[in-house]
Simulated scan of single mutants.
Amino acid sequence: MEKASSSSSSSSSPRRSAYLEALTQEIKKKLTRAVVSPAQTRNLLQDLFADIALEVDQRAKADVILSKEEEDGPLCFFDVLADYYVNVSERGKDILDLMVQLWSQSFASHIFSLLFHKWVLLASSLYCFFFYSLPKALMCNSSQLFEVEVENQEILLRYSSALVQGATNVFWIDIQTNTRRFQTLFRYLLEEVTLQPIGLKNIPIQAQRELYLLISRFIFFYNSVDKLDSFLRNFPEFPNAFLVGGAGDFLVIELTDQLQKLKVEPVLLHYLSQMKVLQGMELRMTTSTRLKACLYSFTSPGGPMYPTRAVRHAAWDALDSLFPVGRYPRHLISLFFRLLYPWYWPSSCWNFVVSCIKAVLYSIVRLIFSRREKPRQS
């Protein structure tokens, strides 16, 4: 059995390489067409982005996955290609050259962040001890691609900034569609970059700051609040920290800005439900006031946010949890201002009546079941 499995693995490795090489050639063809046909550049890049963001189907998984242990949840083409361009880096050189020519085009940063997010960290660490600890074969393959680029810090900063910009764009696509197709990219940036001080220090400081602000905006959406403490401990220093505050202040400022931009109700509800993890965090008075004002803007109907009833209740829950002092006066003031808008009275009265009826029905049901259980216990 062991011989059979080893022979199967060895035979699947060339098949995997051939499959990924074929994908690489298709990517190069589309990028080349995008370079030589400016009128079709946007459509070609959009199609290419859609292709690499697709989930690998079951038929293709037999070619790109060596064993069942490598299959962990949904697998997209960019996940496989990102690993391929790190392990066999000379295959990505032509693609990188074409990407540089299309740098200012739409969807170029999207594609770069998906295909080369692991490459950027490796390029940053090329001449550092962290890179020398990698396998020798990987180091030799990578040096052919990186030896020119990484010596120029400006180029490295451009690559890092493109990574952050592209990641921002694809994460917003997830938010607009309320999906988590690019969660593997986010987790890589969080767990393998921002939570790894050894690798992080090799990235330009400006790119570090941009990356941490990016993670701050989307850490709630990708359900990574359990790593929030470690994330804040590794937060880099900002030149305006004496004015803004500490890591918690930067996190809350980014979250409040993010909340103001969200228009998808399920995503907004998800963010508001996660806000309770900020309870007990030390914040400056200005940051705390900013957060309170942001949450309060979602508690009343109408402009400028026009929140739904579910959003208003979620905002009240978050506000009361984070700022319990003054809870009842806030509700009284809100009720007073609601009385100033008579056109909201019918809906408010109707929702109040429905809530009362539901509460009475639930009480009756609980009473009936409790009386039925008493004879059984006796």
Rank of each mutant, 00 (worst) to 15 (best):
T299Y: 00
K29A: 09
L96T: 09
L20K: 11
Q165S: 10
L44M: 09
Q377T: 00
F130V: 12
E21Q: 14
R327S: 11
W343L: 08
V36Y: 10
N178E: 08
V360R: 10
A123C: 13
L138T: 09
F77N: 10
T41P: 02
A53E: 12
F146Y: 06
V354A: 11
S288M: 02
V225I: 08
Q208A: 05
A108L: 01
G326M: 15
K29F: 02
L195I: 03
Q153N: 12
P239R: 13
L214D: 02
A314Q: 14
V35C: 04
M285W: 12
R181M: 00
N141C: 08
I175Q: 05
Q101S: 00
D94M: 06
L243Y: 07
K276V: 04
P38T: 01
R376A: 07
S9R: 13
S133F: 01
Y188E: 04
C349W: 12
L251W: 04
L114Q: 03
T289H: 13
S133M: 12
Q208S: 07
L122H: 03
Y341Q: 15
N152A: 11
L157K: 13
L134F: 09
R309T: 11
L115D: 06
I253M: 08
L335D: 13
A137R: 13
G92C: 08
R33F: 03
R338W: 09
I357N: 02
L66H: 11
I203L: 14
F250T: 10
W103S: 00
V264R: 14
R33C: 01
C76A: 08
A241H: 11
Q165E: 05
K276W: 03
C294V: 00
S10N: 15
C128F: 15
R327E: 06
L291W: 08
